[in-house]
Amino acid sequence: MQGVVKVNSALNMRSGPGSNYGVIGTLRNNDKVEIIKEVDGWYEIRFNGKVGYASKSYITIVN
């Protein structure tokens, strides 16, 4: 499943599904990501070869 990031500035990509996990990357508005699965309001995603987590509130699913 594919998604597009929708933010005003930047979205942190984290090592786990929560804001208490470390930041491993930064996503920008309109970045395209691969959604692997949903975990407690977060998406596990793949972006630029990295796998991490981002809040699903800021990612819109596209077909």
Rank of each mutant, 00 (worst) to 15 (best):
E44S: 06
K32V: 15
M13Y: 12
R14K: 06
G18M: 02
L27C: 04
V62Y: 09
V39S: 07
I61Y: 11
Y21R: 03
L11C: 05
I59G: 02
N29E: 13
A10Q: 08
I59W: 02
A54D: 00
A54M: 04
R14Y: 14
F47V: 12
S9Y: 13
V23A: 10
I35C: 04
R46C: 05
V33H: 01
N8K: 07
S19V: 15
V33Q: 00
G41E: 13
P17S: 02
Q2N: 08
G3A: 08
N30C: 05
N63I: 13
A54G: 07
V39I: 15
A54F: 03
I36W: 05
F47W: 07
K50I: 13
A54C: 04
A54Q: 02
G49W: 06
G18F: 02
R14W: 11
N29R: 07
A10N: 15
L27N: 00
Q2G: 08
V33M: 04
D40A: 12
K32Y: 09
G52I: 01
W42Q: 02
N48K: 11
N20I: 11
Y43Q: 02
G49Y: 11
P17G: 02
K50F: 14
R28E: 14
N12Y: 14
F47E: 03
K37A: 09
D31N: 08
E38M: 06
K32L: 11
A10L: 14
V51A: 12
D40K: 09
I36V: 11
G22E: 15
K6P: 02
L11V: 09
V23G: 04
G41T: 12
K56W: 05
S57L: 12
N63P: 13
K32A: 07
Y53W: 13
L27I: 08
G16Q: 03
N12T: 12
V4N: 05
I61R: 05
E38V: 10
S15P: 02
P17N: 02
K56E: 07
I35F: 04
I59F: 05
V62N: 06
N12F: 13
V7S: 07
G41A: 09
S15H: 06
T60G: 10
E44I: 06
G49R: 08
V5R: 00
R46I: 06
R14I: 07
I24K: 04
R14F: 12
Y53T: 00
V23Y: 05
G41K: 07
R46F: 11
S55M: 14
V4M: 10
K37E: 08
K50Q: 10
V7R: 05
M1A: 11
Y21Q: 03
G41V: 07
N30D: 09
K56S: 09
V7C: 05
E44R: 06
W42I: 01
N63F: 04
N12A: 10
N20T: 12
G18A: 06
T26E: 10
G3E: 01
I35S: 01
G49H: 12
F47G: 05
K50G: 10
R28F: 12
G22V: 11
R14C: 04
V4K: 05
G25P: 00
S9W: 08
G41M: 14
I61K: 10
R28T: 08
V51H: 14
G25W: 12
V5W: 00
I59V: 15
D40W: 06
V7E: 04
G16Y: 02
I45E: 00
Y53R: 00
S15W: 08
G18Q: 03
A54R: 00
L27P: 01
L27A: 04
V33W: 02
V39K: 08
M13V: 12
W42N: 02
I45G: 00
G49V: 08
E44K: 09
V23N: 04
E38K: 05
G41S: 10
V51Q: 10
I24H: 03
S15V: 09
T26Y: 14
I45N: 00
S9C: 05
T60L: 10
I45D: 00
N63S: 14
I35P: 01
N8W: 06
Q2R: 08
W42F: 10
N8C: 05
Y58R: 09
S15L: 06
G18H: 05
E34P: 03
M13I: 13
S57E: 13
D40F: 11
N12K: 10
N63E: 13
K6D: 06
N63H: 12
V4T: 11
K37H: 12
K50N: 15
E34C: 05
V39A: 07
N8I: 14
R14N: 11
S55T: 12
S19H: 11
P17V: 02
T26L: 12
K56Y: 05
D31Q: 07
V39Y: 13
N48H: 14
I36A: 06
W42H: 04
A54T: 14
V7Y: 07
I45P: 00
V7Q: 04
G16T: 01
V33N: 00
M13C: 04
K56M: 11
K6H: 15
Y58Q: 07
K37I: 10
N29Q: 07
G3D: 02
M13Q: 03
W42T: 02
A54I: 08
E38S: 09
V23S: 09
G49C: 06
G49I: 05
I24P: 01
W42E: 01
I35L: 06
N30E: 10
T26D: 05
V5Q: 01
N8R: 04
G18Y: 02
Y53N: 01
Q2P: 09
N29W: 06
D40L: 10
Y21W: 10
E34T: 10
R46G: 09
N8F: 08
L27E: 00
K6A: 14
A10M: 14
K37S: 11
N29A: 06
T26W: 10
G16L: 02
G41F: 06
I24A: 06
N48P: 03
T60W: 13
L11E: 09
N63L: 07
V5T: 03
V23F: 04
S15Y: 09
I61M: 15
V4L: 13
A10K: 12
G3P: 02
P17M: 02
N8E: 11
Y58T: 06
R46V: 07
M1Q: 13
K56N: 08
R14P: 02
G41H: 10
Y43G: 00
K56T: 13
K50S: 13
I35V: 11
L11Y: 07
A10P: 15
N8G: 14
S55H: 13
Y58G: 15
G25T: 10
G52C: 03
G3V: 04
G18L: 01
E44M: 11
I36T: 11
M1W: 10
N30G: 14
G22H: 12
V7M: 04
N12V: 11
L27T: 02
Y43F: 15
V62R: 06
E44F: 11
S15R: 07
K50C: 05
N29P: 10
D31C: 04
I35W: 03
E34Q: 11
I35M: 04
I35Q: 01
K56G: 10
I45Q: 00
E44G: 07
V51N: 08
G18P: 00
A54E: 01
P17Y: 02
L11K: 12
Y53G: 00
K32C: 04
K50T: 15
E34A: 06
S15T: 11
D40R: 09
N48G: 12
R46K: 15
S15I: 08
Y53K: 00
D31P: 01
V23K: 09
I45S: 01
N63R: 03
K37Q: 09
E38T: 07
I45T: 03
A54K: 00
A10E: 14
E44Q: 14
V23I: 15
V62D: 14
K6V: 12
M13P: 02
N20D: 12
E44T: 04
K6F: 11
L27R: 01
I59K: 00
Y43P: 00
N29G: 08
D40H: 11
A10C: 05
E38R: 04
E34R: 05
Q2V: 13
L11H: 07
R46T: 09
V62W: 06
Y21N: 04
Y53H: 03
F47P: 01
A10V: 15
G52W: 01
S9K: 07
G25H: 12
N48M: 11
N20F: 14
R28V: 12
G52S: 03
G49A: 07
E38F: 06
G18V: 00
D40I: 08
R14E: 03
I36N: 07
S19P: 15
K56D: 04
V51I: 14
E38C: 04
N8T: 14
S9Q: 13
W42R: 01
S19Y: 15
S57H: 08
Q2L: 15
R14V: 10
V5S: 02
K6R: 11
V4A: 06
N63V: 15
K32D: 07
S19K: 13
L27V: 10
V62F: 09
V51S: 14
W42P: 00
I61P: 11
G52H: 01
G25A: 09
